[in-house]
């Protein structure tokens, strides 16, 4: 039954769907762990995806956990291995992604320009809240003290600003 051509086709479609679904998630996790500027990112993501596919086709994934958790576990293990390998060579493990990111890709640059345009359109009260909360990384309480408003109001300003930005950028 398993070797019927239509079943094989279905399995291939599932794998394709799986790749489309998990590639961005794995990429995000890898970039966050080893730094977006790290040139090994793409290779590592491809390697993880191959491992996932291999384990699914070999029947190693038996549905004991969700597929997401299964992919997450493989990703995490591979990242730990990568850092271990690099530590031996580099003496120091790579730091998590630093700010600012100097290796913005063209696509990211375009998106970033969109965000900048949207940020510029915000009222000063929203910009001030975003600056203190995200750029200076102050807590809600610290930002509240700086702005002379309540911490609850800081949350409201930040959340509403995010909403306005996403509406403006249509993302």
């Amino acid at each position: 039954m398993r070797d019927r051509p239509e079943d094989k086709l279905r399995a291939e479609e599932d794998i394709k769907e799986l790749m489309v679904r998990y590639r961005p998630i794995i990429t995000f996790r890898v970039r966050k762990a080893i730094g977006a500027q790290n040139t090994d990112c793409d290779d590592l993501v491809s390697e993880i995806l191959s491992q996932v596919m291999e384990k699914i086709t070999s029947g190693e994934f038996r549905g004991e956990s969700s597929l997401g958790t299964f992919v997450y576990t493989i990703t995490s293990r591979r990242i730990v291995d990568y850092i271990r390998e690099k530590t031996r060579v580099m003496k120091f493990a790579p730091e998590p992604e630093p700010f600012p990111d100097p290796q913005e890709t063209l696509e990211q640059k375009e998106m970033s320009e969109k965000v900048q345009a949207a940020l510029e359109k915000l009222k000063p009260k929203y910009r001030n809240a975003l600056y203190l909360y995200y750029y200076q990384e102050l807590s809600r309480e610290e930002a509240a003290a700086r702005l002379g408003i309540s911490p609850r109001k800081v949350s409201e300003l930040v959340n509403y600003a995010l909403k306005l930005l996403r509406k403006e950028m249509k993302i």
Partner: peptide, 8 residues
């Protein structure tokens, strides 16, 4: 994306 832009 938003936080990265703010940071950069």
């Amino acid at each position: 994306l938003i936080i990265n832009t703010i940071k950069n």
